[in-house]
Amino acid sequence: MTVRLRAHHLLCMLTYVGRGYSPAFTANYDRVLERLAAGEEIELVTGPDDICAPLLDDPGAHCRLDRIRDRDEAAALAVGALLGRAIPPGERLVPTPVLVARLRAAFRDGTIRAACAGCEWSELCTAVAAADFAGARLDRSTDRVLRFGPSAPRCP
């Protein structure tokens, strides 16, 4: 199986610390990270993805808005430029610790943050990045296996 992610969620997963739109959303987000930790690949999709799932019962969910699709396009361009190749919908990525470290370094220095402009979570993500991603649920491992951080503290 694969984890279906929209492009801007490649950025969000770097700084996710257990906060979200609802308890159902954060529980689902944690499950998605556990799937990545279990070795599932990421498949880039257009529109709502596995992280958005708990919000989709609401016909007005923000994940369907044009500005969010624009955020996806900006993220895909930035991450693609970093990787030196296009990452269109359907592209698959393996979230190795090397890739996560590279994305985090570019996120921290602002190289891939164009998609974050106007996002309500931007300040939180900036603070997490400035703290070297302390508390982020996506854990870095030295054994080349991406792990979900079970000891990552929950934010209030």
Rank of each mutant, 00 (worst) to 15 (best):
A38L: 06
L44E: 09
A86C: 14
R67V: 09
A37V: 01
C125A: 09
R113L: 08
A130S: 12
L55C: 15
E123F: 03
A134S: 12
H62K: 15
W121T: 01
L103I: 07
A74R: 14
L103D: 13
P59R: 11
T142A: 13
I68P: 12
A136L: 08
R144Q: 15
C63S: 10
A136M: 10
A130N: 00
A61P: 05
A101I: 03
R137L: 05
A81D: 13
A134H: 12
V94F: 07
R69Q: 13
D109T: 14
A27W: 01
G47C: 00
G90M: 02
F133K: 00
V100N: 05
I87R: 02
G80K: 02
T26A: 10
A152R: 00
E120M: 09
D66G: 11
D72I: 13
P89I: 10
L93G: 03
G60E: 13
L99N: 00
A75T: 03
R85I: 06
E40M: 07
E91Q: 10
E73W: 07
D139C: 10
G39S: 13
L103K: 10
A136D: 08
L99H: 03
D57L: 14
G135L: 01
E40Y: 02
C52V: 10
T111C: 13
D66S: 10
P153F: 04
P95F: 03
E73T: 12
R137H: 11
A136E: 04
R67G: 05
A134N: 02
A115T: 00
L65C: 05
T26P: 05
A76K: 08
C125G: 04
R140P: 07
E40W: 03
L146T: 15
A129T: 10
G110Q: 05
Y29Q: 00
V79I: 12
G84R: 02
A81H: 09
T96L: 00
E34R: 15
V45T: 11
R104N: 11
T111K: 12
T126K: 02
L103C: 12
T26K: 13
R67A: 00
P88F: 13
F107V: 00
C119M: 06
G84D: 03
E91H: 07
A127V: 04
T26D: 07
R102N: 04
S122E: 09
L138G: 04
D58M: 06
R147I: 06
L83Y: 00
V128E: 03
